[in-house]
Design a binder for these strands. Structure first.
Lengths: 210, 210
DNA sequence: TTATTATCCGAGTCATCGCTCAGTTTTTGT
DNA sequence: ACAAAAACTGAGCGATGACTCGGATAATAA
């Protein structure tokens, strides 16, 4: 584990697969990694074992991935994209209250429908290169939501920093749902949790009338 | 990484140190582990490296720890205890609003005063044996806070399940502060974050008058 | 067809890691 | 002072893991 001169590409694909069979190879590796992560553990997921489970040779694996870390970085990247898509998918809400409801329900929905993998990624895989894709879910969503709330300011209680509040609320939702996923998954899908969270956020964000 | 017959003591001390120098050895190992974790990484923290940094022989390390995982489990256990102490320390609040303020400020205080180690433990160390100590911070605190809130019911908005709400609020605080610690530490100590969080919680929990 | 590029293969190398054990030193108890 | 218990030592073993490389095979292009 020598780090000669901090290579950025340590967590990226060595090269893009061009042919279809190559894309299939990459996908097989990622699927195998996910499966081993969920059924065994991160430390059991050696490159040799992953390659074997994927049905590709260890040599092929290293054609595309510079190492074990890159495999899981890519896996997380792709899950992050799915997560983002899940949250931003239709229908677009037409008012702040619907926005909060949509945010909470979609978030719970995504996490609980991928619970095993989500939890394993969160609890077992080290967060290399945290800055890069870690924010994928929030990076685009926050400014977008902020703009939305700005245009519906009249429905909100007076806040002197809407941008900050927007980010805070996003983080409260993601972090709290994450916490339930890891530590109390039996409540994750409960009406009670979803409704309480929405109520908590609404009461803070919105004025009485809304 | 063979797991013959799921031994429970994999994450516990092999034996309790009886003499002072033995306690010093254990402490030195834990300190070294923490230091390497923070300055290098979890995967760089091999038992050999930890022993060397601690200034004890590898043999001595294995007198007390059954393996690498046990070292970090113990480290986390001790940090968890500190965390709990930090949150439950005087002065005991006399009303719900003070309770919320106390909870938020103490929590932020603890996390930000141990930020590097806290973040490293959260992001790099796998959560083995999650059930055991993971809940240390909440396990005692939640029922205790729940009882407290029950006795001050008249200051609260009507809630049909105070126990659930208590736990929810605890989780919102810990999870959100944790999220800022990992992903936006520049806001962690800000007045704005602390005050917004308290406001968010109060508005949901308390009735107008309180 | 033929040249070129892309993909795949897997035995084998080398480093490192977790861990043991036989023996020494220190502390404690009587 | 002496024995027993506790603590410490570190060379070295066995296992495994990440990764390479020389070469085979397949797809694409000219």
């Amino acid at each position: 584990m020598q780090m000669t001169h901090t290579e950025k590409q340590r967590y990226q694909l060595r090269k893009q697969p061009k042919q279809a069979r190559a894309r299939a190879t990459v996908q097989a590796v990622l699927d195998a990694a996910a499966q081993i992560l969920v059924t065994r553990s991160y430390s059991d997921a050696s490159t040799n074992v992953i390659a074997e489970r994927a049905g590709v040779s260890i040599g092929s694996l290293y054609e595309y991935f510079p190492g074990k870390e890159a495999i899981f970085a890519e896996l997380r990247r792709r899950e992050g994209i799915k997560h983002y898509r899940s949250i931003t998918r239709e229908p677009r809400p037409s008012n702040p209250r619907d926005m909060l409801r949509h945010l909470v329900t979609q978030h719970v929905q995504f996490v609980s429908s991928n619970l095993a993998l989500y939890v394993a990624l969160e609890t077992e895989v080290p967060r290399f290169a945290i800055a890069e894709q870690e924010m994928a879910v929030l990076a685009d969503y926050v400014p977008q939501s902020n703009a939305f709330l700005q245009t519906h300011r009249e429905q909100l209680r007076p806040h002197n920093n809407i941008a900050f509040i927007t980010e805070l609320l996003m983080r409260v939702v993601t972090a709290t749902v994450n916490d339930y996923a890891l530590r109390a998954p039996e409540y994750l899908r409960s009406e009670e949790l979803t409704e309480s969270l929405i109520d908590l956020l609404s009461r803070y964000l919105l004025n009485e009338a809304a």
